[in-house]
Design a protein around this nucleic acid. Structure first.
Length: 803
RNA sequence: GCGGGCGUGGCGGAAUUGGCAGACGCGCCAGACUUAGGAUCUGGUGUCUUCGACGUGCAGGUUCAAGUCCUGUCGCCCGCACCA
């Protein structure tokens, strides 16, 4: 019987949809399982096979869990705010709402054709007002708890997209969206105080099961360092210049100070500074450099000495010069450093260039050549002299600073507060009103959602203003507090906002009283397993953990961490080994594969093609291997024998396969799970038949990978009910063991013979029989046996040396 | 520069964590069936000088035994990047 995949896949997809087979039940007696995949941005290009791989992993887990008796929540939705839809609108005049709806429609049909077991009744769209109402609600809660603030700063500005970008969105000095060069600009920016959660986010990592590399990346992103703040007084003023250092014990080695070009004391002591113009000129020059250039010019230190201001080293009273240089950043620490050229390479290079003294305070290295950053005995350091333990000398130094009132222990993070606004149309409006009398006033909760107004022109306004600024009816409003005339904030939230809490909405997607019902949250949360791209491990996940932790702190969600387990799939590369992209023309459309080979083949192939966590190139040839596999599986229908159990010849193989497939699915080893099933299928063919019992187990194990063909076979063979409602097969550990095994007989580690033994055969008889082998006897002649080793069920090794 | 990972046939990749390297699949070779084969089936397929030897980037080491552990080295990928 030929397998008509197109017809059969359609048949089962229709049945699953009509019977709502995969709908999650809110609160049931079954144990719950929440598997989450990153929801897609519905781009105009449609999905590519990489999306399919990303979802197929937990699709298999979800289907397996259902068969194991779990009540599974496996949802999908669309993260649909963002620039591409808006840029497309500018180009074509089509409203982003329309474009987004079309794309979501397209994505949905693609996903359905692959037969994913998503609960389609819980689909969410971040651009729907019933959804973004709650995004705004959470924002206002944060505002209420003082986690939102506004500040004028130099920001990363993309002149092409005309938006302010966070550091995360402008890495490498390029706009994350259009890849043009970022410029620095002064602007009012909304911030979320994520740094206040830095420690909690670090602590939380101890509680969760993320792959080690994911944890490490998050830790590096947060970038906690411990050290001390030290105050240096400025001669002739009562100003204290505060610095941050991780090595307060090297204070005796400080020979100058460096401050960031934007540091406020320059402006403050303008009158005392005699070369103010030179400083201004340097600052202007730095402003022209992009953040990227600033960090790239590592080798060449530049700077200007501040004439007229000197600092006093508080530990020895020495007067030292102050420089400005762009190797000191205003956004880390205090924007000022104490320079210890002997023990910091950057300070060393700067000192060499400007002819500043270098005082060694840690023994070791050769400071004629470079800074010494290793450990060693403290020298030239007063009360610290002789100390050889870094930790101890730092502690001593901090104790001294605190005692004298010139400094204190301190902590710094690399992570900055989150720039939380964009001057664009297609995002959640920030629900704040600017009142001339009351200042920033939040839109009252009962007036949410603050709807995005209809506009005709999506072009950003002058100077990168949001398009919303041009809508008078939106901008002009009355102050919710005093009732006076006021103006609305016209910026919108960044792309990351909607995805920072979407997993909570799936729990209760239609609730209009709360973002989700407390009972349902208690039942479903936390997410048991979250899979997505490695590129979202830092930004998206840190943001989502931050929002969730905040909601936990104000009692809105039940557990401190949202995701118990996190994994990341590897990319599917084009057939040319390059990253898939439209411009390279190497994108594979899942629809084409489904048309040609069927959904089961596509699903099987994306999981079989390699290590799930690593990148692997697509191969049109290799897909055919999976096509053959599925066809051969279907042909089993013609060779079924009526026996319900397993045949003796395959009993052990059946149990081993159940064991292997069951455990491989749990550890992302989908490729070897499928390989094992292929081997078993080959065994059926070699035997020339398959018993009903074997078939039942085999198609159940294969069902999570290839649900259509297996469901059809279940029906054809008259098994009771539907396959997706049966039970995951069990295996017996005892039966996984073969009674007799073939072992290798080695001489000096080289295999010379094979021996069939009973697994429980005692060591001495195994060794005896090994030595009776004709070939072994021959090779032992003229040699003396030094040692005999038997590894149970594996091998015998006879160690010899010539007589 | 720092952090993480990887290097195995012609290709994608396996290897119970120190125990028979190359599972499974692709490709290739041969045969069968066919008017036909880019369908299907059967068998073969690491390399070489083939009763043997050599083989997991390279060079050493530990061990009865190393893809796996240790030291050094080369190459690739991914994050972060003047973080004081």
């Amino acid at each position: 019987m030929k397998y008509n995949f197109a017809q059969i896949e359609k048949k089962w997809q229709k049945i699953w949809e009509e019977q709502k087979t995969f709908a999650a039940v809110d609160i049931s007696d079954k144990p719950k399982y929440y598997s989450l995949v990153e929801f897609p941005y519905p781009s105009g290009a449609g999905m590519h096979v990489g999306h399919i791989k990303a979802y197929a992993g937990l699709e298999v887990v979800s289907r397996k869990r259902r068969l194991q008796g779990y009540n599974v929540l496996f949802p999908i939705g669309f993260d649909a705010f963002g620039l591409p839809a808006e840029n497309y609108a500018i180009k074509t005049g089509k409203h982003p709402r329309k474009v987004t709806n079309d794309n979501i429609h397209n994505f949905t049909s693609q996903l359905k054709r692959v037969g994913f077991s998503f609960d389609w009744s819980r689909t969410i769209d971040t651009t729907h007002e019933d959804y973004y109402k709650w995004t705004q609600w959470i924002f206002l809660k944060m505002f209420e708890h003082n986690l939102v603030f506004r500040d004028k700063t130099l920001i990363n500005y993309c002149p092409s997209c005309k938006v302010v970008l966070s550091n995360e969105d402008s890495q490498g000095g390029k706009c994350d969206i259009c890849h043009s060069d970022i410029v620095q600009k002064s602007k009012d920016v909304w911030y979320l105080r994520i740094t206040q959660y830095a420690d909690k986010l670090l602590e939380g990592l101890k509680e969760v099961d993320y792959s080690p590399n994911i944890k490490v990346q998050q830790e590096n992103w947060i970038g906690k360092s411990t050290g001390a703040f030290v105050n240096f007084s400025i001669s002739g003023t009562d100003e204290q210049l505060k610095i941050y250092t991780t090595r307060p014990d090297t204070l005796f080695g400080v020979t100058f100070m460096v401050i960031a070009p934007e540091h406020p004391i320059i402006e403050k002591y303008k009158d005392k500074i005699t070369n103010f113009d030179a400083l201004e000129a340097y600052k202007t020059e730095c402003g022209k450099k992009t953040a990227f250039e600033r960090t790239q010019l590592v080798k060449d230190k530049t700077g200007v000495k501040i004439e007229g201001l000197t600092a006093v080293n508080p530990i020895n009273g020495k007067e030292i010069p102050i420089y400005i240089s762009d190797y000191v950043m205003m956004n880390y620490g205090t924007g000022a450093i104490m320079a210890v050229p002997a023990h910091d390479q950057r300070d060393y290079e700067f000192a060499k260039k400007f002819g500043i003294a270098i005082v060694q305070v840690i023994k070791g290295g050769d400071i004629e050549k470079e800074a010494y950053t290793g450990d060693g005995e403290m020298i030239n350091s007063g009360f610290l002299n002789g100390c050889t333990n870094k930790k101890e000398s730092i502690e001593k130094a901090i104790a001294y600073l605190q005692e004298k009132g010139i400094g204190e222990a301190g902590v710094q993070y690399k992570m900055n507060d989150w720039a939380f606004n964009r001057q664009r149309y297609w995002g959640e409006p920030i629900p704040i009103v600017h009142c001339p009398k009351c200042g920033m006033v939040p839109v009252p909760y009962d007036q949410l959602p603050l709807k995005l107004p209809e506009v005709e022109n999506f072009e950003p306004g002058q100077d990168g203003e949001s398009p919303l600024a041009k809508i008078d009816s939106f901008v002009n409003c009355s102050c919710p507090k005093c009732g006076g005339a006021a103006k609305r904030e016209t910026d919108t939230m960044p792309q990351w906002a909607g995805s920072s809490w979407y997993f909570l909405r799936y729990v209760d997607p239609h609730n209009d009283k709360a973002f989700a019902d407390q009972e349902k949250l208690k039942y479903w949360m936390p997410v048991d397993w979250y899979n997505g791209g490695m590129e979202h491990v830092t930004r998206h996940m840190i943001y989502a953990r931050f929002w969730y932790r905040f909601l936990y702190d104000i009692g809105e969600v039940p557990y401190p961490e949202p995701f118990l387990k996190r994994t990341a799939q590897g990319l599917i590369l084009g057939a040319d080994g390059e990253k898939m992209s439209k411009s390279k023309g190497n994108v594979v459309d899942p629809n084409e594969v489904v048309d040609q080979y069927g959904a089961d083949v596509l699903r099987t192939y994306v999981l079989f093609m390699g290590d799930y966590e690593k990148a692997a190139p697509w191969s049109d040839e290799a897909v055919k291997g999976c096509k053959r596999f599925i066809d051969r599986v279907f042909k089993l229908n013609d060779m079924v024998t009526p026996q319900e159990g397993y045949s003796p010849a395959l009993e052990s193989a059946m149990h081993k396969t159940i064991k292997k497939v069951s455990s491989d699915i749990e550890t992302l080893k989908y490729n070897t799970a499928i390989a094992t099933l292929m081997t078993l299928l080959n065994d059926f063919y070699a035997k020339g038949g398959v018993t009903r019992g074997e078939l039942k187990t085999f198609i159940t194990l294969l069902n999570p990978f290839a649900p259509h063909v297996t469901e059809e076979m279940w029906e054809i063979n008259g098994f009771a009910g539907m396959l997706n409602q049966t039970q995951w097969p069990e295996y017996c550990e005892e039966k996984c063991k073969d009674e007799t095994v073939q072992i290798a007989v080695q001489i000096n580690g080289k295999v010379r013979a094979k021996l069939d033994i009973a697994l429980d055969e005692p060591q001495d008889t195994v060794l005896k029989r090994a030595k009776e082998d004709a070939r072994i006897i021959e090779l032992l002649q003229g040699n003396q046996i030094v040692k005999e080793i038997y590894v149970k069920g594996k091998l015998v090794n006879i160690v010899v040396r010539p007589q």
